[in-house]
């Protein structure tokens, strides 16, 4: 029993990271009905920028984190303005192709700059050795606590932004009903750019947090592809429309994967995610947190 609970605990911090990635996907899905497949590439790229600063130039962890998030904001905003805007009104498939193209472009570019085959390690912010309670050794370390708090703070800040500020009201309105919002004087285009920027900022945070989860965590592009898969799964579990669902979906996924890794095998982790994804789509195709009714006008 202790092992069962301990494993669940061990999945929470990873789950929060998946939740953050899911949140970044949900933010874009809600406002533009586009699944941003480039998110995996964006957060990989911003994490490499941070890695370069920390490991090559000896910059402090926090400064690098801030730079990563700011790069994310810029990368997201520019991507929307330059790449996504022109295909926004076309068939949905166009946008999918554009985001996939951006993903491949960013991966290629990162390979050119930082090398494709090297393994890079990223330092964790805090100690990664678990707390001990009595003689029990917990699968939860100061670094995990930091991850949980960091993501929770971002979620609360976003919630305040969306629910408590005029800017957030405009952003929600333009997501729900762009045409009506325009009639009311909301500059919907600018808000879409801002939405993509914020989303990529959240993704950038998730990337840096993920990179520091284990000492010597290797950083070619591979792990970030998996992160996108987990983030997407978490978003689907929660229902692509629900920010709260994204985080809850992320933590659930983290815990489930932690159990599956230990009780079954840890060699096929992405496979579990797919199994969970399919199961959710079969049972509740709209996700656990979706609205009961379809949108009425």
């Amino acid at each position: 029993m202790f092992r069962f609970v301990n494993l669940a605990l061990g999945g929470v911090s990873n789950g929060m990271i998946y939740g953050a990635v899911a949140l970044s996907l949900v933010m874009i899905w809600r406002s533009t009905r586009i699944v941003n497949f480039a998110q995996g590439g964006m957060l990989m790229f911003t994490t490499f920028i941070a890695w370069d600063l920390v490991q090559v130039h000896g910059v402090n962890y926090w400064a690098a984190l801030v730079v990563a998030i700011i790069s994310g904001l810029i990368l997201g905003g520019v991507s929307e303005r330059v790449l996504v805007r022109p295909v926004e009104t076309g068939p949905p498939l166009n946008a999918v192709i554009v985001t996939l193209g951006l993903l491949i472009f960013l991966q290629g570019l990162a390979g050119m700059i930082w090398g494709n085959s090297q393994a890079h390690s990223y330092p964790p912010a805090y100690d990664f050795r678990g707390y001990t309670v009595g003689s029990k050794h917990l699968l939860f370390a100061p670094n995990d606590l930091y991850i949980v708090i960091a993501v929770a703070v971002v979620v609360v800040l976003l919630w305040l932004l969306f629910q408590r500020t005029p800017l957030g009201l405009r952003m929600r309105a333009s997501a729900f009903s762009p045409e009506v919002s325009r009639l009311l004087g909301v500059r919907v285009g600018r808000l879409l750019t801002l939405g993509w920027a914020l989303s990529a900022g959240v993704g950038a945070l998730a990337g840096v947090l993920a990179a520091g989860t284990q000492p010597g965590y290797v950083l070619p592009q591979g792990p970030f592809d998996a992160l996108l898969v987990y983030g997407f799964t978490a978003a689907v579990i929660g229902g692509l429309d629900s920010p709260l669902g994204a985080v809850v979906g992320g933590v659930s996924l983290g815990v489930l994967l932690s159990w599956a890794d230990s009780y079954i095998s840890n060699n096929i982790e992405p496979l579990y995610a797919f199994v969970i994804l399919i199961a959710v789509l079969m049972v509740r195709p709209n996700g656990l947190f979706s609205r009961a009714a379809a949108r009425r006008v």
Binding site: P166, L169, R170, F176, V180, S181, L183, L184, V186, V297
Partner: peptide, 26 residues
């Protein structure tokens, strides 16, 4: 110039007050 669109264009996901505030936000 304010426009009340056909079918009213009330944003149902927002509260009554949020809908109203939106009209004056600019």
């Amino acid at each position: 110039i304010a426009h009340v669109p056909e079918g009213r264009g009330v944003i149902t996901e927002l509260t009554v007050e949020e809908n109203l505030r939106l009209g004056g936000l600019w």
